[in-house]
């Protein structure tokens, strides 16, 4: 336990030394902080309507103006970050867990299972993400859970393929062969010995994947197929701003900039993490 903690400490120090990594760390830190303490930060209730002060431009009372229902844009931006993370984190972790398990089984198990799982991965990947998302939303209806499901389903193959490749390269290494010759079960070999060697690479992948997920959630909400209306979401802000782009352009800026910032932050963090965790990966992609 002590060892892993110091390893984690080393990784954080490594990331913070890299200027881009530090920037990513700060941006992500701010977003996470705002999401956790959103309730105390917002000056107004993000879903409270105030028709008398609708469509007002930025002012001292409303930092980023108000929308067509008089809701405070700044409060909705902050609360929207909470929704973005609520979708992104479960989706990314879920996809990582499932992809990791399937990928390790594909890499370690019998050949026919490998082929079957690869076909499964390739099939999911062959739907253009948004088309798949649209089809699923059309079928089961828009909600937060649908978005999480879609995002999870579409990113499983990425994790699965990487986990499989890593497992394949490790499966004939001496420590695994030794374990197998002692009669360890497949679950034990994969869970206890394989997993620690793969998880780092996948964690980096997950960090780089979060921006894609945030963008997809915002995109679906922008199309009116994501989270349902009164819920504040960056995509919903963009939707309101787009339909009244001449009257309330600040909504487009208020919804768009956090998305770009969040993507920047997580990308910087992910790239820096990758260089620290595994410098060899730098050449790939």
């Amino acid at each position: 336990m002590e060892k892993s903690r110091s390893e984690l400490g080393q990784i954080i120090v490594g990331v913070a030394r890299d200027p881009l990594g530090l920037m990513g760390l700060i941006i992500v830190g701010v977003i996470v902080f705002c999401a956790i303490f959103a309730y105390w930060i917002v000056p107004y209730d993000p879903i409270a309507m105030d028709i008398k002060s609708r469509m007002q431009g930025p002012s001292t009372a409303h930092l980023l103006g108000t929308d067509q229902l008089g809701r405070d844009t700044f409060s909705r931006v902050i609360a929207g970050g909470q929704v973005a993370l609520k979708v992104a984190l479960p989706a990314v972790f879920g996809a990582m867990a499932i992809g990791l398990t399937l990928g390790m089984i594909a890499g370690y198990g019998p050949k026919w299972l490998d082929n079957l799982l690869m076909l499964f991965f390739d099939t999911i990947r062959s739907f253009p993400t948004v088309m798949f998302a649209l089809a699923v939303v059309a079928l089961i209806g828009p909600s937060l859970q649908t978005v999480v499901f879609v995002v999870m389903a579409t990113s499983i193959p990425t994790y699965g393929r990487v986990a499989r490749t890593q497992t394949l390269t490790l499966r004939n290494s001496e420590f695994i062969l030794a374990e197998r010759s002692m009669g360890a079960s497949m679950a034990r070999i994969l869970g206890v010995h394989m997993l620690p060697n793969i998880i780092g690479v996948l964690a980096v992948l997950a960090a780089m994947d979060i921006p894609t997920v945030i963008a997809l959630e915002a995109g679906l909400s922008f199309l009116g197929l994501g989270v349902k209306p009164p819920t504040p979401s960056w995509g919903a802000l963009l939707k309101d701003g787009y339909s009244l782009i001449r009257q309330t352009p600040w909504l487009v800026v208020g919804g768009g900039l956090p998305i770009i910032l969040a993507t920047l932050g997580f990308t910087f963090l992910g790239e820096s993490l990758r260089d620290v965790v595994d410098p060899k990966l730098r050449k790939q992609r």
Partner: peptide, 23 residues
């Protein structure tokens, strides 16, 4: 290039619409 990679197309599209088409 790092910054550009991060920009989701539909957000860029909206901002471009706002700046270059509407404004």
């Amino acid at each position: 290039s790092v910054s550009f990679v991060a920009a989701p197309a539909f957000v860029v599209a909206l901002l471009a619409l706002l700046v270059f088409a509407v404004h």
